[in-house]
Amino acid sequence: MSESSEPLPLRVSTPVDDADREVLVRVAAGDLDALEELYDRYKTMAYSIAYRITNDASLAEDVVQDAFLGAWRNAAKYIEGRGSVKTWLLSIVHHRAIDAIRRRRPTSELPESTDAPPAALTAPDIWPEVASGLDAEMVRGAMAVLSPPQRQAIELAYFGGLTQQEISERTGVPLGTVKSRMRLGLLAMRGFLAAAPGRDDATLGTSTP
């Protein structure tokens, strides 16, 4: 397939990223002041994501605590070059929150194989960095390119913790359509980001469907 087969070369190391890395090195060395700095910097973002997923203030609080303690324990395992500290930390928050709501869900709603945890519960896949240097306007712009059905499918999956099969059942939309909505939605966002000013990525601007 010729469409959009390259990752976006958007890895831009901002001064914030560098400062974050320095803080994380101190966290890895057991410096609690550094953990506090990291918390102060990202508490609002972390709590917002946790609340968005759990829709429950006290559960969101547990998730944020869990995530920062996870960062405390695992700071030494953060691999520079695989993404910014911010993306790493927020993805920990995200995955802990998804774990939390999946644990809470009545067993009748769980996918058939209850013994095998859904993918997100194990090792999160890490993708090349694109999010780190984006400002709020770019983020809003990228979200705005989604059609309402694309947005619904993506949000049910990513923030609702549902599998594609569950989304299909819940919305009454055929599985194949759910899959392509998610895929084309992400592709559209990617196209927007690739074409945005300031991104040296002109060759990839053709991917928007």
């Binding site: 508490k43 090349p128 895929r183």
Partner: peptide, 27 residues
């Protein structure tokens, strides 16, 4: 293409994060 789509995913978190909810002070 998998990495290309995956690289967009954190943007969804940034959108959720932009709501700006403050956690409780005691946390």
């Amino acid at each position: 293409e998998v990495a290309a789509l995956g690289s967009v995913v954190p943007v969804l978190d940034l959108d959720a994060a932009a709501v700006g909810l403050e956690p409780p002070a005691g946390l």
